[in-house]
């Protein structure tokens, strides 16, 4: 029996994992949680923006990292619209432009400009300003597009944004690009230093680490980013000196969604994460129980397969 358990076909584990993921998706259970200081600090930084200030939102992730980082990108975009700040979007990832387009279409054009969903008039107060007006492309927000060159682009934007992005994407896909000199939202913006806040949804390289190394420390910029959970340990040394906020993975996204009162994919994802994580912990415990029982029965047996040698 023990032997059978020790050499358990991993597909059984896969099956239980699948159940642990699918069930919470179908039957949402919400466990209470508190926003951690780095997430709250990001929220406070956005909350402190005055209407009309300009913010850079860099969307640097691909479809693979979408579930982890996009919930925050959506939540923070709603938050920025709520603050009525001007938004400049861009990306350093070649697979991100369709993602940015869908964010604009769904949240800026779909929700805010149509007064639907999060911005519906029947939602709790404070989401739509007294002097509500739809966001206009080029005047209130703009998408600069994708630029190849990775960290070189980041360093270049620290010196001269227009040299890196001489033209911006058209309002509609496939339209003619617009010279940045004709974009009102960029008037008065010549480099990264001119943004009131720089936000980034970062799923790896080039990402938040490169921003900190290339420009944030050098020009003392106000910078916050959301990253995948695996990169949090990489970035945590930068908080709070270089990065004023850090949103880590699904958990961080869920906390941000809670702060802006927009429970979405992050919150439901956190439930999935909770049950998945509990299952991993149980798998570790089970593995160890089997290991100790085996050792008790055969005290001099050699350890099983796996296990690293440094």
């Amino acid at each position: 029996m023990l032997e059978k358990l020790a050499t358990l076909d991993r597909r059984w584990l896969f099956l239980v994992m699948a159940i642990a993921i699918i069930v919470p998706l179908l039957v949402p259970v919400s466990l209470p949680f508190e926003a951690s200081p780095p997430v709250r600090a990001t929220y406070d930084a956005v909350e402190a923006l005055r209407p009309g200030q300009t913010v850079l939102l860099s969307i640097d992730y691909d479809p693979a990292a979408r579930p982890e980082v996009e919930p925050w990108a959506r939540a923070v975009l709603r938050h920025l619209l709520r603050r009525r700040v001007k938004i400049v979007m861009m990306t350093l990832w070649d697979k991100a432009p369709p993602i940015v387009r869908s964010l604009i279409n769904e949240i800026v054009l779909g929700e805010y400009n149509q007064r639907r969903g999060y911005f519906a008039p029947d939602q709790p107060g404070g989401r739509l300003a007294q002097d509500y007006a739809p966001y206009r492309y080029g005047e209130d927000y703009v998408f600069l597009g994708y630029k190849d060159g990775k960290e070189i682009v980041i360093a270049g934007m620290g010196q001269n944004l227009r040299q890196m992005f001489p033209v911006a994407e058209a309002e509609r896909e496939g339209g003619d690009k617009i010279p940045v000199a004709r974009i009102p939202v960029l008037s008065g913006i010549s480099s990264l230093r001119d943004f009131a806040l720089i936000l980034e949804a970062s799923a790896g390289f080039p990402g938040a680490k490169e921003y900190v190394q290339q420009v944030v420390t050098r020009y003392r910029l106000r910078f916050a980013a959301a990253t995948t959970a695996v990169s949090v340990t990489d970035l945590s040394p930068y908080y709070p000196e270089q990065m004023l906020g850090l949103i880590g993975g699904m958990r961080g996204s869920a906390e941000y969604e809670q702060l802006v009162e927009a429970p979405g994919l992050g919150t439901s994802g956190l439930n999935v994460l909770t049950f998945g994580q509990i299952f991993v912990i149980l798998a570790i415990v089970l593995g160890n129980v089997i290991f100790f029982l085996q050792r008790r029965l055969r005290p001099r047996s050699s350890p099983g397969a796996g296990g690293g040698v440094g």
Binding site: V230, T233, D234, G306, G308, V309, G310
Partner: peptide, 12 residues
């Protein structure tokens, strides 16, 4: 560094 734990767990 972030990938080392995975390799340690699955490689000899």
């Amino acid at each position: 560094i972030t990938q080392l734990p995975f390799f340690i767990a699955a490689c000899d």
